[in-house]
Simulated scan of single mutants.
Amino acid sequence: MILDINNLKQINDRYGHRSGDRLIITAAEYIKKSFGQQGKCYRIGGDEFLVICRSCSEEQTANAVAALQEQIKNETGEKGISLQIAAGYAVQRQEDTAESLFQRADNCMYENKEKMKRACR
């Protein structure tokens, strides 16, 4: 699973990097709370996270993502900054390499990010 905080650059530019850092910490806490029992959670970039779940079905993963989105729906942090996290996942197929699995999850996350941006317009 790949997760990415939406609009972090704009938040850093408008409110400063301390506010952006607090948003990253908040996101990490929600991600760990949502997925920590099912797998391992990693921060892999400035605002990107990776969750590796073993023995999770696609339905379980989709339900966990929906639960994360429900939890953060009403999260408004300092200065009225709302937390939005785009998420994408892929369930490993026999022919997958680590790279192809990551790429499918990443593509799914970017599709989700675009849907979220369109919904806000």
Rank of each mutant, 00 (worst) to 15 (best):
K117P: 00
R104L: 05
G20W: 05
F35Y: 11
T76W: 03
E75R: 12
K113Y: 01
M109T: 00
E99R: 04
I31V: 12
E70V: 03
N107K: 11
A62L: 15
L101I: 04
T76G: 06
L50T: 15
A28D: 07
K117Y: 14
Y15A: 06
I11H: 03
K9E: 08
V91F: 03
I52P: 07
R14W: 01
R104P: 00
I72M: 02
Q92S: 13
C53S: 13
Q84R: 13
R118P: 02
L3W: 01
G77N: 14
M116I: 08
G80K: 10
C53F: 09
A66H: 06
L50S: 12
M109R: 02
I24E: 03
L83D: 08
I11Q: 03
I25Y: 11
L3T: 00
I52Y: 08
Q94L: 13
Q84C: 14
S19W: 05
H17I: 08
K40F: 15
K113M: 00
I11T: 09
N12E: 08
G77E: 09
D47T: 09
V65F: 05
G77R: 08
T97E: 05
Y89V: 06
I24R: 10
S82L: 04
E59T: 07
S100D: 09
S55L: 10
E78F: 03
R14E: 08
H17V: 05
I25W: 11
E99N: 03
Q37Y: 04
A87P: 01
I81Y: 03
R18T: 13
I81N: 03
C41S: 14
Q92L: 07
R54S: 13
Y89C: 12
A28Y: 04
M116A: 07
L50E: 12
Y15T: 01
Q84K: 15
N112K: 04
I24K: 02
A28P: 02
E111V: 07
I44N: 12
K33T: 10
D47Y: 04
Q94I: 12
K73R: 15
E99I: 05
A28I: 01
R18Q: 12
F102Q: 08
A64Q: 00
Q84T: 14
G88W: 03
L50Q: 11
N12Y: 10
D96C: 06
D21M: 07
S100K: 10
G77H: 14
A67S: 14
G77D: 10
N107C: 08
I11F: 02
E59G: 10
C56A: 12
R43N: 12
E99M: 02
G46S: 10
L3D: 02
I31F: 09
D13P: 09
N107P: 02
Q10P: 07
S19D: 06
A62G: 14
G16I: 11
F102A: 10
E114L: 01
R118L: 15
E78N: 12
Y89S: 11
I44C: 12
L68W: 00
T97N: 05
A105L: 03
A62I: 06
D47N: 15
T76Q: 14
E78L: 08
K32H: 14
M116K: 01
G20R: 01
I31A: 08
Q94Y: 14
N7C: 04
L23Q: 06
I5V: 13
R22P: 05
